[in-house]
């Protein structure tokens, strides 16, 4: 087990190193001249050159790379030119915002998708199976920005039930003291129920948008894997032994069907974390996805590199966690290791 873990860690370290090299190379190959962009609207050739020297962009590429790696080793991700802040500070401020939104969205999605998937499998071909198929297909085929705008239009603009899509908090509240960066948790730590409810209300629409989008893979995966398990021998045996349907489905079938579902959850989570740019844009959410996209538009290298690196590390950690979870859910995985 330990050997396997260390071998795995070695591979991940290698892939992170590769990510560093590739992102560096890719961002330099991109068209667009950072210096010209930041020299401002009235810049001459001289002014652009001045900015270029100031940003160190006049140095040869390998020298820039060495400097970049040295800075990374010191935990310095460089400066973002678009926000004017150190990248590491931007990312630590924005990652929790994305993570909180994604987690709430995912939990919401799980609460609906898993029971729906299980029901669809148990009553295969019934009304509920068709309903679940329609919901899943509709959810995944509507682009997120569209669902987001639609929800904002109905629940904020027409009905006025939801709060204004102004980001994480209404302007009359100030953010709770930073502990985890998750407003829901921080506000509870600060014992400020006002802010807790305000933050929760802001979360509803964007989280629902994400949930609708991620319903499909989770429902379909739950259904497929439940179907496979339900038709297996041990379930037939359990049924034949006269166990209650409830016991058969939940204790025996569902637990065995969970493995692929967990894998899907991991994939969906990491995908959502990076890809909810559009939801962040629609709801003015100060998350990490919109941060990276804005930086990319401005040819701002450092944040893009920082974003990719952080995402790569997150992916690796997430996969590690899922591997460990496998062991908890299915003892056979532990034995095999």
């Amino acid at each position: 087990m330990l050997l396997r873990m260390s071998r795995r860690l070695g591979i991940t370290l290698f892939s992170i190193a590769a990510v560093i090299v590739i992102t560096f190379a890719l961002t330099r190959v991109l068209p667009g001249d950072t210096a010209a962009y930041f020299a401002g609207p009235a810049a001459t050739e001289d002014a652009i050159q001045e900015v270029r020297v100031k940003l160190g962009l006049d140095r040869p590429k390998y020298e820039q790379f060495i400097r970049y790696v040295q800075d990374l080793a010191r935990g310095d991700f460089g400066q973002s030119l678009t926000t004017g802040q150190p990248v590491i500070r931007d990312i630590t401020a924005r990652l929790p915002a994305s993570a909180e939104l994604t987690l709430v969205g995912l939990i919401l999605s799980i609460l609906i998708a898993i029971p729906l998937g299980v029901l669809a499998a148990v009553k295969e071909g019934s009304m509920i199976d068709h309903v679940s198929r329609v919901i899943a297909t509709a959810g995944v085929s509507l682009p997120v920005f569209f669902t987001g705008l639609l929800l904002a239009y109905f629940f904020y603009f027409i009905l006025g039930w939801a709060p204004a899509p102004l980001g994480r908090l209404d302007i009359i509240y100030s953010a709770p003291r930073h502990v985890t960066g998750f407003y829901l948790i921080d506000s509870l730590i600060a014992r400020d129920m006002d802010v807790f409810w305000a933050a929760a209300k802001q979360l509803i629409l964007p989280a629902a948008t994400l949930a609708i989008f991620s319903l499909a893979p989770i429902t379909r995966m739950t259904r497929a894997s439940m179907l496979a398990v339900l038709s297996s021998d041990f379930v037939r045996t359990a049924k034949a032994s006269g166990l209650s349907t409830r016991k058969v489905i939940i204790t025996y079938a569902f637990r065995n069907a969970l493995l692929p579902v967990i894998t899907t959850l991991g994939m969906v989570f990491s995908f959502l974390l990076g890809a909810n740019v559009l939801v962040e844009k629609v709801f003015a959410w100060p998350g990490i996805g919109s941060y990276a996209v804005e930086a990319l538009i401005a040819s701002d290298f450092a944040p893009v590199q920082g974003f990719v690196l952080v995402m790569a590390v997150l992916y690796v950690l997430l996969n590690l966690m899922i591997d460990l979870l496998y062991g908890v859910i299915d003892p056979r995985v532990r034995m095999a290791a």
Binding site: A164, L166, G167, A284
Partner: peptide
């Protein structure tokens, strides 16, 4: 004065029309 960044033009309009901005 609070200056909020709202990237979606549709939502900026909605905020104005609802009287929030």
């Amino acid at each position: 004065i609070v200056w909020r960044i709202v990237p979606s033009a549709g939502n900026r309009r909605a905020l104005l029309e609802r009287g929030d901005a």
